[in-house]
Nucleic acid binder design. Sequence first.
RNA 1: GGCCCUAUCGUCUAGUCAGGCCUAGGACACCAGGUUUUCAUCCUGGCGACGGGGGUUCGAAUCCCCCUAGGGUCACCA
Length: 490
Amino acid sequence: MTDLRVRIAPSPTGTVHLGLCRTALFNWAYARGRGGAFILRVEDTDRTRSTAESEEKILEGLRWLGIDWDEGPGVGGPHEPYRQSERSDAHALVAAEVLASGHAYRCFCTPERLDELRAAQEAKKETPRYDQHCRDLDPGESDRRAAAGEAHVLRFRVPEGETLVRDLVRGDVRFDHGEIDDWIMVRRTGAPTYNFVVVCDDIDMRISHVFRGEEHLVNTPKQVLLYGALGREAPAFGHLPLMLGTDRKKLSKRTGDTALGDYIAKGYPREAIVNFLCLQGWALDGETEVFDTETFVKSFDITDVQKAGAVFDPKKFLWLSGDTIRRMPIGELLTAVTPYLEAAGMVNPSGIAAQRPWFEQLMEGEQERIELFSELPGRVRPFFEADDAVTYEEAAEKNARKHEARAEHLSAFLEWLEERSEAGEFETSELSAGMKAWVKERGLKFPALFQPLRCALTGMPGGRDLGDCITLLGLERCRTRIQAAVSRLI
RNA sequence: GGCCCUAUCGUCUAGUCAGGCCUAGGACACCAGGUUUUCAUCCUGGCGACGGGGGUUCGAAUCCCCCUAGGGUCACCA
């Protein structure tokens, strides 16, 4: 059996894009589901745009998603180093080999000449391409000019013919070599280009399958040709459909957030993000939308991947987030939400531990009402406000003022509450039932008490069960709030 | 524009490779009911698609061709 080895090769030039996350996820799942190895390699050949911070963000982001790598930065491996910029010696060796074998040639054309060429071609509405000016330069002359220190690049000598790419997602794709430029392998600075190093490194690292975004499909014949020139067998390829924005173009900041960090900050649960990403171009069985990572790993196959691009649907993502939150154990939810509570100044780190049951009750009432962790502080605000200065939202106050005898009802209800407390009957479900009975005994409609009471207690027009609010606040705080409301709602 | 990819409800998709089981299934969204003290959850129902045209076949969402539409790519970026 040939060793299954897949990789993700991000370039550290910015934020952690969701597309990268999905590609990583699919590669990783493919390896994990088949006992293969998953390798992480940092593609930092563009020295001017690559940053260490970006690289660190990528590693952090992948780890956060639950993706672990068998070889790569941080864990090492038999094919070190895993940062392309540190592999230049190997690249130089291969470049020399390709030049010596005649599959590549030196090109001494100046960037100015190339610019003019391109401009002329564009003016004539032709496809911009290299005119192979240096392709048939005499080898002796080429060597002399290079030895004399004349600046040059190394170009791949694309032969006549066509290349067949057998894509595990798309099937067979043919490319006529007449359409492929004699592409640059090594820049005049001596730095190798992406199409060149990606092949060198994938060979060195024994990569067996390359799954990446569809934007790389047209690069593939160039790479396949290089594998051939090097006498190596190309890996299997699979080009994933693009993730599209609502404008049906490649997902970009233009139509919404694209960075993993944005979603983490908003409080999408990890499971929801992974689950949603899995759904972009792949489906478990066509029926089941919600599944865990383990199920994904067990079921994922590259040949099941959709060919057409997938438009990113923020609404469905939000729904999935809320659904995931609703299924979380309360303790886990509390942990997830703690940073948001702290950031809102509602608790300090030890505060929750000291009143854990209270916080758990608080969470239980909100669990089905939030779709993102970040919504929580706004929703529980009333429970952290001063009792004599609850913020009344306009809609809540309006609802309360609809009832003529609001102050009388509130005062009477407070008396009833005091009695319940003295009687030791101050538990949520008994209170909820008792309140309803209280309203009916007086021949009232529910809103006559509940709307003013909700306003008094929370200042909000809607929300959790009022009995629940009462037990959460306790008699003292309820008394203050109701008394305040009696005067404020006159 | 050249080349390449793609084409099922508004969106994500199942079904396409092995044509009949498809009067095309699920999910989100939307709409209407129900449950509920409110909000939310939850439940029920509804709306809603095989881009168009030719073939092949007894039979096509599924196979072939053309058209159309969308996307990707054309860097000394990756």
